[in-house]
């Protein structure tokens, strides 16, 4: 069936159906009480309802880890894959079916450690998808091992005397990759900002990378505690081309105008560790997306046969 026929089917399905946020919840999330992943799931449900996305024409792809259970809880097609490999699966889906909405949910172990190679290259491919890195600074599902984003000195089951290396900063890494087109940071405890960031990411035609600072009540309850209690430690990056959700001005007084087009400023801000910065660090909607770069005209089966028969002439004896 051609893609045209698919869209006709979808149009029929569209008629008269209106989705509420709760319609996108397939079953209750099975994360620990107080887990930041719930906040991400709620924001995603709001986004899907706002965009009235058809459950049948979007795919949530994940790897392995607490956050990667996400697709099981969303009313959509889902692919819960293997550790670190969500991005190649998502890329294949998007290459084959560019008309599908693709969301990737990954964690700091999944994306920044075992899947780091795919992460770097997926940024460069710049395929149109929303990628949520739920970063709790720890391996949760395997019960408390140091991840690449675990702060220096923070202890875990595998580093009982504290992490020996400085944390790898996903924002700096992402901003350093050629062809990066959308890089943002938000936090599970600022729902309005999380939602606004997701909206912007969905709106961006390309690889939208969002690092979501995510609390893990079980293994890293203290890492973001200060930031949650003391909003003065957080600076919002605001701009008309970024995000500036209403209602946060009073709580988050530290605000910085940052033009997301300014890659040098974005990199400089990402490097500074004086405050937590939430907002769109970089955005360029003009960069080519891989599925369009590689798009080729459709060829009917009969035409393929005709062409292949002609191709054989080159090899004819």
């Amino acid at each position: 069936m051609s893609s045209l026929a698919i869209s006709l089917l979808d149009l029929e399905a569209d008629a008269g159906v209106c989705f509420e946020a709760e319609d996108y919840q397939k079953r209750p999330g099975k994360w620990c009480a107080g887990c930041g992943d719930f906040g991400a799931l709620n924001a995603v449900k709001r986004l899907l309802a706002k965009e009235q996305l058809q459950p049948d024409r979007m795919v949530f792809v994940s790897g392995i880890g607490c956050s990667s259970r996400f697709p099981h809880y969303v009313n959509a097609y889902g692919f819960h894959g293997i550790h670190g490999r969500a991005l190649p699966l998502a890329s294949g889906i998007k290459l084959a079916r560019p008309e599908l909405d693709v969301f990737v949910v990954t964690g700091d172990g999944d994306c920044v450690s075992i899947g780091a190679g795919h992460w770097i290259h997926a940024i460069r491919y710049n395929m149109n998808m929303v990628v949520m890195l739920l970063d709790n600074n720890i391996y949760g599902l395997t019960k408390n091992q140091t991840s690449p984003t675990t702060p220096l000195g923070y202890s875990s089951m595998t580093s009982p005397h504290g992490a020996q290396l400085p944390a790898l900063d996903p924002l700096q890494a992402t901003l350093g990759v050629s062809n990066a087109s959308f890089v943002a940071q938000t936090a599970d405890w600022v729902p309005a900002h999380l939602y606004a960031t997701l909206e912007a990411a969905y709106d961006h035609p390309g690889f939208s990378f969002i690092r979501i600072l995510q609390r893990c009540p079980k293994f890293t309850p203290d890492i973001f505690e200060q930031a949650v209690k003391d909003p003065a430690r957080t600076e919002l990056l605001v701009h008309e081309d970024g995000v500036d959700p209403p209602g946060l001005e009073k709580l988050y007084e530290a605000r910085r105008e940052h033009d997301p087009k300014d890659i040098d400023e974005a990199r400089s801000l990402a490097r500074r560790d004086d405050m937590i910065r939430l907002g769109v660090f970089f955005r360029d909607d003009s960069l080519p997306v891989y599925e369009e770069v590689r798009a080729v005209p459709k060829v009917t089966p009969q035409e393929k046969i005709n062409r292949l028969n002609k191709e054989f002439e080159r090899y004819a004896v």
Binding site: V59, V61, F79, G81, R85, L87, P88, L89, A90, S91, G92, I93, K94, L95, A96, R97, L100, G117, H118, I120, H121, R294, V296, P297, K298, V299, K304, R307, L308
Partner: peptide
């Protein structure tokens, strides 16, 4: 010329993953 592409992936693992993703999606 036949409506297809060769995708050179970043590694062998990704090459398999992209193929599986595409197959899952119908191709």
């Amino acid at each position: 010329n036949y409506g297809g592409i060769v995708h050179q992936a970043e590694d062998e693992i990704a090459a398999a993953g992209v193929a599986i993703g595409a197959s899952y999606a119908g191709k």
